[in-house]
Design a protein around this nucleic acid. Structure first.
Lengths: 351, 351
DNA sequence: CTGAAAGCGCTAACAG
DNA sequence: CTGTTAGCGCTTTCAG
């Protein structure tokens, strides 16, 4: 037990060897005689020595720290992705340094071996900033033509959500987006395509966008108060969907009778609130991104990896109350029984 | 736009000054002639230079990085605390380095200016590990006699929760703890004292503990299936309370009629699910902890700061269904109207 | 196998 | 005001 933190030189003196030998022992070099290694190890424990990470980083040029950029404060889905990231990175001996992607400006020069950007849709200036760090970058939750990425097919997901509503017999289907983040825009495209394929007229008045979750409530009221209100609604994220649900309740609309609501992401909250949604493997996406980054750090080529989405039917979707037996299939009932099943088209339905 | 990252020496050469002058400009020293400063700044932007954080850290002995230890994966309340931490630290120019407090062992020697431990109840060995880092430590969510801390009075909170149930007319009140984390144990003590003060018999069979949230469901079923089941239940955390709610629903018990449930923490989920709970300022606790740590880093004495808790009545508590007007006050009704009011005893009731 | 010495990029005296 | 220089603690040739 000593006061000031010991240095490698002190260990060397204590063990009566050179600092290089101590360094070799520290780094597991086989080129050290057993007896010498023992002497060094003894000295280390006697002095309570621990190598200084900063000095090592300066010397090797590698910090063993990964910067994780994320909009923590707005999206719960990000937290779940972060779990995967943290697990993989920590296990590999890397530190996780958090950055709020809102303030992307203040990325430190040096000090980071790589960057993991979660749910970031980088504009041209963002790309420059990322590049300025001079380290490998991997995107999680967003495809990119120049950057390595782990992502899902948001267009397919948007289509899946919309088709679920269509299958239940809905035709007036609204879309509430999140102010055109990359993912939200792609989900909207899937929505539009599903409508087109089903031959359902696309009413622009049913497509709304709310950058901030608060506005979603107002949008919902406006939607429900219109002359020809929607009977189904697809929200570009679970957070948005939950806001819609609250607004609908406040408006006196029953869910799913008056308004069927489907979200996107399958965050934990969705499970508790019984929200029907499009699930994507959140934690896995984070873990996958971390693994990809680690691989790139080892010299692997920057690849891209796509994960799959699936429909999760819970309690907020059902046929429109005006309908009688018009639905092709009662998804609601499927959602009610607690078993998990796979439909022949590969879409999982679970409660 | 240059390929390799420039160094201070290159900037110095480019600006035709010494490295010390560049360093002075970098650190905002006033002792630099304006014209010289301009030359340096020009060279810097011409070379796209950014100082190397690692080298600076090694030289100054301060890394401007704070380690944040937290059980991220088990408690949602931690995320909200983290928001406050991140806001304060980032604004002060510090990096946030995440550590899962489960694996407390792998704290790096050096590389961190300070440690912030969230919801950690450090045992003797943990204290040694924390001390081994050789930097100031601040605890968030846990009082400590040797360490600086930001915390609330969990005993008072537990008492508050129990008194709410007592006031509603409950006498068979169960407690579900979280396997005796520090906070949970203190909340239980508050529960016991409230019962004692009210002259209500304390039945040990009503006190259960579930380290893992999953078990809470089984505990709840056992509690409800007993010969003389509780009519009220106080869970040591919202997460636990939510699990209880699910189990109660599965059991066919109506809430709050058959079982009134109150949680603790007031996480976001609680708002969505209408859970009555004891609220504590989560984000503020994180921010407060960060500020305290920053102050200690500046040489301030290690102080302690206590935040207050308050009762938030929502929809999961009410009088036992057997009762008719026996309650001293109808908290349920108070919770129903959306205004926020302060009772004369300082307990806020809001919906 | 082992030790001496040269950096890694920056800051901070210390002289001018 | 400005330049020179000596470290910060560790890794890594390069000689023994």
């Amino acid at each position: 037990v000593c006061e000031s933190v010991a240095t490698i030189a002190e260990v060397a003196r204590e063990a009566r060897v050179g600092v290089a030998t101590v360094s070799r022992v520290l780094n597991g070099s086989p080129a050290v005689r057993d007896e010498t290694r023992r002497r060094v190890l003894d000295a280390i424990s006697r002095l309570g020595y621990a190598p200084n990470a900063t000095a090592r980083a300066l010397s090797t040029g590698r910090t063993r720290a990964i910067g994780v950029l994320a909009p923590f404060f707005t999206r719960p889905s990000v937290i779940e992705r972060l779990r995967g990231v943290s697990r993989v990175l920590t296990r590999a001996g890397y530190q996780v340094v958090l950055f709020d992607s809102e303030r992307l400006g203040a990325l430190p020069g040096g000090g980071l071996d790589g960057l993991l950007a979660i749910s970031l849709c980088p504009g041209e200036s963002d790309l420059e900033r990322l590049a300025a760090a001079g380290v490998p970058v991997v995107l999680v939750d967003h495809p990119h033509d120049r950057l390595a990425a782990v992502f899902t097919d948001d267009v397919a997901g948007g289509r899946l959500a919309t088709e679920h509503l269509l299958a239940l017999g809905h035709e007036r289907i609204a879309f509430v987006g999140d102010g055109e983040s990359g993912a939200g825009a792609r989900r909207r495209r899937g929505y539009e395509r599903a409508l087109a394929d089903a031959g359902v007229a696309h009413d622009p008045a049913l497509v709304r966008s709310s950058p901030c979750v608060r506005d979603a409530a107002a949008l919902t009221r406006k939607l429900l108060g219109a002359p020809d209100p929607p009977t189904g609604l697809f929200a570009a994220s679970d957070t948005l969907a939950l806001a819609v649900l609250e607004a609908a309740a406040g408006f006196g609309a029953r869910v799913p009778g008056d308004l069927a609501v489907i979200g996107y992401d399958d965050i934990e909250l969705a499970r508790y609130t019984g929200l029907t949604t499009i699930a994507q493997p959140l934690e896995e996406s984070g873990a996958g991104g971390a693994q990809l980054l680690l691989a790139v750090l080892e010299g692997a080529p920057a690849a891209a990896r796509q994960l799959t989405v699936e429909l999760v039917v819970r309690e907020t979707t059902g046929p429109p109350s005006g309908t009688r037996g018009r639905t092709r299939r009662n998804h609601r009932a499927a959602g009610r029984d607690r078993r998990r099943q796979t439909r022949r088209d590969g879409i999982r339905v679970r409660s």
